[in-house]
Design a protein around this nucleic acid. Structure first.
Lengths: 181, 181
DNA sequence: GTCTATATTTCGATAGAC
DNA sequence: GTCTATCGAAATATAGAC
């Protein structure tokens, strides 16, 4: 609270005035950030586009968006680890009594699309869960593991930015090629 | 400290006796866990095997290993986010003055292998950094985002285990197909 | 080495002036 | 709404007996 107050240039007491407690402030932050990410993920994948378009759009939009607040994926995963109950609370709040309902409704549609494409030989068969996890993993990980890439691959900010430029165009090709029969 | 002491069935004072401070205990934990993961990653990819074998071995070994302590990837990413200086300190400690040297020495080798395979038309050209990040992302993410999968995909422990069983055999195919020219 | 008891610090929270 | 001052709890750290 003190660090946040200092950074915000206000008094710690003011934070309590607005957020009532530390935990509720944390909730508000998580809600704000996670609430931004999840709908944008669902919306692209729920569109009427072909798988090919979805993959291209998803990767580019995700990288372009997150690039402007590159700390967000790391933050969400970290919070997920230390406070998994926050995501539980959040989803049950926005999705009503049955958390995961939002996703559940569109998983079958994604499955139908993937199955249909596989049937006509346009892609290899793949379970929608695996497809989704692969897609998100490949987009999220570089940001979440940014410090590791800095050290392991020797990427400073400029090099990381070039890495993302390249990834933005290479990753859709990688994924679509993986789906090719 | 108190929680840890309780779980360990000892007195908080004993932790200080052994670790001197909270921060040094955290260092020791991070050192122990990160020190286990990184060498195992490097060793598989530094072997004399073909790319195909490396991918298969890496995925299976990683999933099988982490499955027994599924909290580790989440922990490392969370620590990376909140205390990035720990990884800095650790690498500079084990790798000497130039952190990232370990990785730097084998990146060129990986590049040479990928380039050679691309030249003879066995795979599509791909930068070693992108290849590495893709490989690790696809293995790590399901564990790091375990709570999200639980909610978003409705996976309880049993379903998650089946998800991993499937992933263990499907992921190598996915990656190798992505590399196919 | 392991404990009890306690000192010290930090931090979240509140009261109350303005 | 925003601040100063302060309380009270919790946690880290230390002293010292065994």
């Amino acid at each position: 609270m003190q660090e946040i107050a200092e950074e915000a240039g206000v008094n710690p007491a003011l934070l309590h005035y607005y957020f009532k407690s530390k935990d509720r402030l944390a909730q508000a932050v998580f809600r704000e950030l996670a609430g931004r990410m999840i709908p944008s993920i669902v919306s692209v994948l729920s569109s009427g586009d072909t798988i090919e378009k979805k993959v291209e759009q998803f990767v580019r939009r995700y990288i372009d968006t997150v690039r402007e607040s590159p700390f967000v994926p790391g933050y969400i995963l970290a919070e997920l680890y230390f406070n998994p109950q926050r995501i539980t609370a959040l989803t049950s709040e926005i999705a009503g009594a049955h958390p995961g309902e939002v996703m559940q409704s569109f998983l079958p549609k994604l499955r139908a699309q993937l199955d249909e494409q596989a049937r006509i030989g346009a892609i290899r068969p793949i379970a929608p869960e695996q497809f989704l996890v692969n897609l998100i993993a490949l987009c999220v990980f570089p940001f979440a593991a940014r410090p590791l890439l800095g050290i392991g691959l020797g990427l400073d900010d400029a090099a990381f930015s070039r890495f993302l430029d390249r990834r933005r165009t290479e990753l859709p090709k990688f994924i679509l090629n993986a789906l090719r029969p």
